[in-house]
Amino acid sequence: MEESIHGLQEYIEFQYTFTFSTVLAVIPILYMTPTIVVMFKIFMSCRSPSHWNHAHSMNHNIYIIIMLYFLFNTLFFLSDFIRFSLPTTGILTSWCASIQPNHFFKIIFFLTFYFNYCILILPFLLCLIRLVILFYPKDHPMICHKIMTFSIPFLFLIPFCCTAFMIPALGYCRQMGPPLHFGATYLYYSGGWFGWRNSYIHLVMSIVTCSLTVLCSVLMVWKLRQSAFNNSSARTKQQSQRAETSLSITMISFVIPFINNTILTAVYLTIPSWVYYLMIFRPFGNDCETIMMPWILYLTHPMFRKKTTVRQSSAVSTIRATSSPIL
């Protein structure tokens, strides 16, 4: 167990003091609290029976994916906070050092990456559903139903397959290096099956899911521009431009965590001594997508605007009926 602090007297006698690590741990709570409130407002708005009869109601499949996305993002934030942000403050260092490596710490690490893999898959699934709706406006209910029936079980199965090698492992508290202070730790694992490393699996999953999501998003941009070009309605062009802008912002939001984690993994595998400098900014990079997706939906989707003028146009209706945080 490399860099383990368990049983070491200097860590058992460690006394917590307020440092910059505590500030870094508190900042995410400040921006995640209103974000969770927005997530709850979206959930409650969509639960209303009148919502589904509204001109701007959300597609049922998109609604399910968005709610799952909100759920897994919240669970990932909480588990990652316990695994990384809280231990770096030094509050748990003395307690951690006084107990043996155990499965409880392993479960926290396991769940953090299980939820993270779910978050990697859901944007692609959301983009795929949106793509089907845009390309097959008449047949999309049947096609989307088949996609959801097939993909939802795999949404839970694939992350488990990616993390199952940790089942026999033990979790332990690991000392962080400079520039973080003495006593700053985080949870890690040791003793997984076949000697597999989570960093390689996470890197491959990130590249695959991000590439597929970007591909679907590019196809959606092309379809939106084509629809706007073929329709002379100024209102339709305006709606298409707004959808494209929202899509571009959201693409940036899920590419930032990918770049953040890819660079961190590459440095960890090649120059381990530098990785702790990047770890300071890692939580903020991961939170970009968590924050931006619900706020984009809440601020741009027509169903959250109190005063809206509905214009009866088939092209406009198509765009509105398929509104999502991606558009």
Score class of each variant (00 low, 15 high):
residue 188 Y to C: 02
residue 201 I to E: 06
residue 181 H to N: 05
residue 202 H to V: 13
residue 196 W to D: 06
residue 209 T to P: 05
residue 186 Y to S: 02
residue 213 T to H: 02
residue 223 K to D: 03
residue 187 L to I: 12
residue 195 G to C: 09
residue 203 L to N: 06
residue 196 W to I: 12
residue 200 Y to P: 01
residue 186 Y to P: 00
residue 234 A to E: 15
residue 227 S to E: 13
residue 233 S to D: 13
residue 197 R to H: 13
residue 217 S to Q: 10
residue 218 V to A: 10
residue 182 F to R: 02
residue 199 S to E: 15
residue 221 V to L: 09
residue 222 W to E: 06
residue 210 C to S: 12
residue 194 F to M: 13
residue 227 S to K: 14
residue 218 V to I: 15
residue 205 M to V: 13
residue 210 C to G: 10
residue 222 W to C: 13
residue 228 A to Q: 07
residue 227 S to L: 15
residue 224 L to H: 04
residue 224 L to Q: 08
residue 233 S to F: 02
residue 204 V to W: 10
residue 217 S to A: 15
residue 225 R to M: 12
residue 220 M to P: 04
residue 187 L to E: 00
residue 214 V to K: 01
residue 232 S to N: 09
residue 177 G to T: 06
residue 177 G to E: 10
residue 199 S to N: 11
residue 189 Y to E: 12
residue 207 I to L: 14
residue 218 V to F: 14
residue 232 S to P: 01
residue 181 H to S: 04
residue 232 S to T: 11
residue 185 T to K: 00
residue 221 V to T: 09
residue 195 G to Q: 08
residue 181 H to I: 03
residue 205 M to Y: 09
residue 201 I to Y: 03
residue 223 K to E: 12
residue 211 S to H: 04
residue 205 M to A: 15
residue 231 N to G: 04
residue 182 F to E: 03
residue 183 G to A: 07
residue 183 G to Y: 00
residue 229 F to S: 15
